[in-house]
């Protein structure tokens, strides 16, 4: 759905995006992570034809950036960093203007549909200047979807929202994902990325890595299983470490933390061993590193895990 090949953007001597080569599949939610100034917004602006690349090529929905710009703008929706609504106009008027500019056939119908979907129908005649930040953000999401785009670019969709509004926006993103749209999500909210994204790209001027959140964790930290025992001692730890498939094992209080390549196969063997050794197992669970750990590790080293 989105393909870039060595996409580069320079502002004078400063390189904002360097040789970005990326494939985003149809229907997936692709998370684009990176620190401030990493080039995320510049990439979105290039892919939505707002600014032109300095070098490289990009296609969106099989249309080429720089050649088919108007066609690209017809099939993409964008939620910019700031909502950018006309404060002196009503919510309905704001959406009507954009629906006309996006050449929507049933302007009234589409405006009503999205105002109702995001719970703004009763406030449709109110001036946007009187809206809360969350309401403006919801209205901006309506605007991004009015023309039913195949690809939706969302730049920090929940930034600055209260938890309730953020939850509503996230639920809505899941809804539009279920409709089969491709979503390109720039976010600093790693929990949000973890929950919503099928794959994640980590960016810092250049692309550091791309993978699913689960694979990224595995590649960086491997898979670890925690055995909560009534009593754990070093003798148990020694017996566990003696098994050939154990990558590493540690005792933390009455817990054994064991690194495994294939927990689905090796957990039953480990459980049997521990029971035979007289251990009382209370719980068994997988230790999940947060996406934040993964992200900070990647950004800190700047080295690809590929």
């Amino acid at each position: 759905m989105i393909h870039t090949e060595n996409l580069t953007k320079k502002f004078g001597d400063r390189t904002a995006v360097e040789a970005l080569t990326l494939d985003v599949r149809e229907g997936e939610v692709f998370g684009f992570l990176g620190p401030n100034g990493a080039g995320k917004t510049t990439t979105v602006r290039m892919l939505t034809t707002l600014i032109g690349p300095t070098a490289g090529t990009a296609t969106v929905n099989n249309y080429r950036v720089g050649r088919d710009d108007i066609a690209i703008r017809r099939c993409v929706g964008i939620l910019t960093e700031t909502p950018g609504m006309y404060d002196r106009l009503s919510a309905e008027k704001n959406l009507t203007i954009f629906a006309r500019l996006y050449e929507v056939a049933d302007v009234k119908g589409q405006v009503e549909k999205y105002l109702r979907l995001l719970g703004l129908w009763d406030r449709r005649t109110d001036l946007v200047g009187n809206f809360s930040k969350g309401m403006k953000q919801k209205l901006a999401i309506c605007r991004a979807l009015l023309h039913e785009p195949a690809v939706v670019f969302l730049d920090e969709p929940t930034a600055g929202l209260d938890p309730e509004a953020a939850r509503l926006v996230r639920d809505f993103i899941e809804e539009i994902k279920a409709q089969g749209r491709t979503i390109f999500l720039c976010t600093h909210n790693l929990d949000e990325a973890d929950r919503l994204c099928d794959r994640i790209g980590v960016m810092k001027q250049r692309l550091i890595t791309v993978d699913t959140p689960t694979n990224l964790r595995q590649r960086l930290y491997g898979r670890k299983v925690v055995f909560h025992l009534r009593v754990a001692d070093d003798a148990l730890l020694t017996r566990v470490r003696a098994l050939p498939f154990i990558k590493d094992a540690q005792r933390v209080d009455n817990k054994l933390v064991v690194g495994l390549d294939d927990p689905e196969t090796h957990n039953p063997i480990l459980v049997r061993l521990l029971v035979e050794a007289g251990a009382d197992i209370q719980f068994v669970g997988e230790l999940r590193h947060s996406l934040e750990d993964v992200y900070l590790s990647l950004i800190g080293t700047g080295v690809s895990t590929d």
Binding site: T48, T49, I78, G84
Partner: peptide, 18 residues
């Protein structure tokens, strides 16, 4: 000035308008 203060120009330029 309105376009600038409300940052409306970016979404406007993202529409298929020349």
């Amino acid at each position: 000035v309105g376009e600038k203060t409300t940052r409306c120009l970016e979404p406007l330029l993202a529409t298929p308008i020349t």
